[in-house]
């Protein structure tokens, strides 16, 4: 799972030469073995280093504040999203929905690595949502749809259909 994600990220970043990854431990933590130097371990670490390789450091944030928020969401992805139980899914969706009410992107006013990795990580959850639930978490759905249409992001993942006209308009908002 994480390995396909990293190879999609490479394409998204426009990196020409694919890297070889292995995994370690029970939880299959991805490992990137560089020719020179020690191995890079962990999804976020590898993703950040790929961004630097591609010289697209704006994806890690342009200001100190934006960089911090990007890191916050990368951490959220691996510590909360990746290890959440079925019951926690709803809490996460609710949190995100509230957070995204006044935001287009997760960090600052531009597209960052946080959007990409959160999109990859939450895809399987959104896939399974019923139309009614997608409307309930409207801000998440809108963000998700925007990111999946962002050029070059959606590689290994199937597109999720999002209705623009609400079917259950009696809900919130």
């Amino acid at each position: 799972m994480a390995l396909r994600e990293l190879s999609s990220l490479e394409k998204c970043l426009g990196l020409k030469k694919p890297n070889k990854y292995s995994t370690q431990g029970e939880r299959k933590v991805p490992v990137l073995q560089n020719n020179n130097g020690p191995a890079v371990v962990g999804l976020v670490t590898i993703a950040s280093s790929l961004v630097r390789d591609a010289k697209k450091t704006e994806l890690l944030g342009n200001t100190a504040e934006q960089r911090a928020v990007v890191q916050q969401w990368l951490e959220y992805r691996v510590t909360r999203l990746d290890s959440c139980t079925k019951d926690e899914v709803k809490v996460i969706l609710k949190e995100l929905n509230h957070y995204l009410e006044d935001k287009v992107y997760l960090a600052g006013n531009s597209f960052t690595l946080a959007d990409v990795l959160m999109y990859y990580g939450i895809h399987y959850i959104i896939m399974e949502l019923a139309v009614q639930e997608k409307e309930k978490y409207l801000n998440v759905t809108r963000w998700f749809d925007h990111i999946q249409h962002y050029p070059g992001v959606r590689h290994h993942l199937p597109p999720v259909v999002v209705l623009r006209n609400r079917v259950y308009p009696s809900g919130q908002h």
Binding site: R142, V162, H173
Partner: peptide, 10 residues
């Protein structure tokens, strides 16, 4: 704009 990021398209 409830369901959209920008006015037309993405």
């Amino acid at each position: 704009l409830n369901t959209r990021t920008f006015l037309v398209g993405e």
